[in-house]
């Protein structure tokens, strides 16, 4: 474990807490893409299949359970909570996210480390996570006003993977010198997808203006 990875995990956890706070405090999920949240449930379930079969550390196990639990809780809130589900606007959550599943799965069948169920699904989860934010970004571009908590949520969600890129650089040059091509490339694609969001987010923060993404 290094500082970049710990900071990345904490930033990721913080983004989820910001989202849960927004939904729980305002009893509203306006501006949040249910599709991105559903993709994240699939990402965590396929990523953490070894939750009960492989013990890495207490930290690792606890964080996996927290990520699976919170991602389920968010989808439950948005689908079934009597007040929150009324605030979900499915007309603006238009991205056809199921179209992401098959290409990621096929790519995982072609490009993986080992051809085992666990490894192919783990690889699938990395490819899927790289594109899971797309429905949310598309929704933000279409929504007129982005509330601060939603903007902060997306910012921290993008920042966590950027910190992981620093973690991979650190690990490769200063620790085990092992190439991890699949997480590296997926993580770079994932972080790159946030590039224009980061630009407009920081610009709005500097100019003390409301965050607005060009359509």
């Amino acid at each position: 474990m290094n500082l970049f990875r710990l900071a990345g995990d904490m930033t990721h956890l913080f983004s989820i807490i910001v989202l849960l706070l927004k939904i729980h405090a305002t009893k509203s999920c306006s501006g949040i893409s249910l599709k991105t949240q559903e993709l994240y449930v699939i990402v965590f379930l396929t990523r953490y299949l070894d939750l009960f079969t492989r013990f890495v550390s207490l930290y690792n196990t606890v964080m996996k359970i927290v990520f699976i639990g919170t991602s389920f809780a968010i989808v439950w809130y948005m689908r079934y909570h009597k007040v929150v589900k009324q605030t979900y606007n499915k007309d603006e959550d238009t991205f056809k996210h199921y179209f992401l599943l098959l290409p990621c799965f096929v790519l995982a069948l072609l490009l993986h480390n080992e051809f085992t169920t666990m490894d192919v699904l783990w690889t699938f989860s990395l490819y899927l996570e790289a594109v899971a934010i797309l429905p949310q970004l598309v929704l933000l571009q279409q929504s007129r006003n982005i509330d601060n908590l939603t903007g902060n949520y997306v910012f921290f969600l993008g920042a966590y993977r950027g910190l992981y890129v620093l973690n991979w650089i650190y690990r490769y040059f200063l620790q085990d010198h092992r190439a991890r091509w699949i997480p590296w490339i997926s993580g770079l694609v994932q972080t790159a997808l946030y590039a224009d969001f980061f630009y407009y987010y920081i610009l709005s923060w500097k100019k003390h203006e409301k965050l607005k993404l060009p359509a």
Partner: peptide, 10 residues
Amino acid sequence: QSAQPAKDEL
């Protein structure tokens, strides 16, 4: 092909 690096990341 040496065994792949451990999957110790989240």
